[in-house]
């Protein structure tokens, strides 16, 4: 009986972490009606020291414009490999972008910060348009942007 219990305990121990390691998180971004063309938006995460950890999403598919997302560009050198598989279309003025990602639980309440850089054709670049700590308490709270983004909510 003891080997059976040990095996069952091992099964449980190996299975539970897989269920608890990540959670689906939806980032909802509402753009202002700024009267310009579609916005390029870079979503990325820094750690407690401010060091770049990785990118979560890129709205806008042409790399030649990424230099206008200047903070993201400075952190990554514009490396497309950072955003392979997480790149979509740019977002029009007044539109909502809803991104659903399976994010590591360890990102929350651990000093990580979600940043959004924004850029629009013929308009001023807006690096670090939003910087919001990733915390459990922040879930569902709308955060205003500085120029092009009306609000960002993660839940």
């Amino acid at each position: 009986m003891k080997p059976l219990l040990a095996a069952l305990a091992l099964t449980t121990a190996l299975t539970l972490p897989g269920l608890a390691l990540a959670r689906p998180v939806t980032l909802t971004t509402t753009l202002n009606a700024y009267g310009g063309d579609g916005a390029y938006l870079a979503y990325y995460v820094t750690d407690a020291t401010g060091a770049y950890v990785g990118s979560l999403w890129m709205a806008g598919g042409k790399s030649k414009y990424y230099e206008h997302l200047s903070d993201w560009y400075a952190a990554t050198g514009g490396d497309p490999a950072q955003i392979n598989g997480i790149t979509g279309a740019s977002v029009g003025a007044g539109r909502d972008l809803e991104i659903t990602l399976d994010l590591a639980d360890a990102l929350f309440d651990a000093g990580y910060t979600l940043h959004v850089d924004a850029a629009v054709e013929d308009m001023r670049d807006s690096p670090n348009e939003i910087a919001v700590p990733l915390t459990s308490a922040g879930l569902g709270r709308a955060v205003p942007g500085r120029r092009y983004i009306a609000s960002l909510t993660y839940r």
Binding site: L21, A22, P24, S55, W57, T100, D102, L103, A104
Partner: peptide, 10 residues
């Protein structure tokens, strides 16, 4: 940053 659950959607 990503888990191994559902793939990203936008």
């Amino acid at each position: 940053l990503f888990g191994n659950g559902a793939p990203p959607r936008a």
